[in-house]
Design a protein around this nucleic acid. Sequence first.
RNA 1: GGUCGCGUAGCUCAGGGGAUAGAGCAACUGCCUUCUAAGCAGUCGGUCGCACGUUCGAUUCGUGCCGCGAUCACCA
Length: 633
Amino acid sequence: MSNFQGFEQLITENTVLALKELFDIDITPSQVTLNEPPKDFDGECTLVIFPFVRFTKKSPEETGQLIGHFLKEKIPFIRETTAVKGFLNIAFSDEYWMQFLTQEALSPDFGKPQPKAEKILIEYSSPNTNKPLHLGHVRNIVLGNALEGLLKEAGYNVSTCCLVNDRGIHICKSMLAWQLSGLNETPESSGLKGDKLVGKYYVEFDKIYNTQAKQCLENWQKGDFTGQNAATKDKYLLLAAKLNTTKDEEESKKLESAIKDLAKENTPIMAQAREMLLKWEAGDEATLSLWKTMNQWVYDGFAVTYKEMGVHFDKFYYESDTYLLGKDTIQKGLKEEIFYKKEDNSVWIDLTAEGLDEKLVLRGDGTSVYITQDIGTANLKYSEFKMDKSIYVVGNEQDYHFKVLKLILQKLKEPHAEGLLHFSYGMVDLPSGKMKSREGTVVDADDLMQEMILAAKSQTEELGKVEGLSEEDAWNLYKIVGLGALKFFLLRVDPRKRILFNPEESIDLHGYTATFVQYAYARIQSILKRAETVEISGSLSKTTLESLEKEVLQLLYKYSQNLEIAATELNPARIIDYAYEIAKLYNKLYAHHSIFAADTAADTQFRIQLSKACGQLIKRCFNMLGLEAPDRM
RNA sequence: GGUCGCGUAGCUCAGGGGAUAGAGCAACUGCCUUCUAAGCAGUCGGUCGCACGUUCGAUUCGUGCCGCGAUCACCA
């Protein structure tokens, strides 16, 4: 085992000691502030002296000098300390960094934290089965998968699940349109991927729906309300009257869309879809059978996409199994007077004290709403996984919902309530604005991945990098590069922030991209390969480091710290950025210092080992986030 | 209107009570007879939305304002 000690710890401990011995002042380690030194100082760390000055009753400079002197005495590895204003810059010796390389960075266990007892369940992807996955899901999946890897790397016990919304009016729409078409299309007969086929009929439904709604509206405008009930008629007349009198532009827009929605709700095809949902709920055999068949098409399609993305779920939950859950919990909550009943028998919770609203938790007819099943599913998950933390990877449009869910579970005193965590990520926008399925601006997940792979292919070919690669290896490389670019693009920003997806920029393989990092990795592998064939004399005997070499070691040193931060912040972008930093610095080193034509054998040997350490870390960072690093490119 | 989030270089984004605020893209310059130029080196580019407050020190924290977005469904 290595007895290497981190410099922060060395400085912190000894600073506490210094204040005690020099000034007889008691401080805690947490009162010691360490900063990055300024760029023009060749050292690792800056101790901020200002906070101590009021105790020491000496000038910042003098205090710094005294502490600096003390530290240098106590820590043999310190080469130099310089007090500037209220800052004490500290530089460690090359020997210290050589020790770091040999004892730490090169070890396969470097930066591997102790396994943690905490068990974490991550739910992500969570698709509907009425249409294919799109860019929004891709961000969700890439994030969920990266989070999984990140937390595992940080030592947690992580499981994953996917909650599939496989029932409801959406699915009935696809089913109905399929039925109405009378074509009996299957994935086999149409040659379409299952989810694409079902999605096609969802769009088909929407078309009919819109045509009928238009017709309906025209009839209403003519005063023809045949087939409509009185309530609808009254509602329409009221809205139309309001529209006629309002002068506010925004108001009239709202009214117009309300009228449109009303018409849509009252189309014959919508009535049919609702009827189908009722049949499904009643367990009608023909309906169930069609539902099963079409859902299976979708699952087969999703499986292909998940596989391409390299993700796996430990458990699938289906809403058809869970949508009735939670009702008993509502009853329990009623008894405990956490919920209350209104005259129409509907059940509510009052969250106004918490700054929220009154929320419905069960309809008057006893049927569930969204939150009812979520309560039930949360309980189910806990009974199966007994997790300490339950992470939901769900878009920030549902912030409110998850606030409510957590609050309710807390009020119900569910043991898993405190551990519920909504990993709220930002929406994906296109340069053209929001993705809207109706306007055909949805970016399909499979198409997107294919495009990225093809972009990688043409780039690679253009650069003449395929020479000597088998067809299979070449395609494998395109995939690594193309999907890497996509994932990197989605992971490089703070997950909480909304993201602007510019297709051209995401396909770019220069600069702050996965390709850049992968290229550095491939270079390293090429170096290591050559190193095997070259006779290298001498051991790791280098004693004086070039400043770039030291910088690289200092950067590698930060791995554990970055991993820790990334894991607590649940921020894969931290790791992305770190991997990029390593690649960038390595490329610089590579350009400035020759490895095999170095001045001395010790230099060569050292740089090979340094390269190796960089490669190991790059690969580890990438792999934990679901990206790959190719051996050559 | 209430709640929440965001506002940093022309664009996309990092950062964060501490010294001269960083990357990438775009634009412009150099560098392949030497380990992969998918690279390296450089130039240009900033009132950190505005105002006030907290303090040794604010771009960072607080309050207010302005702008953008999300949400406030007996949808999921």
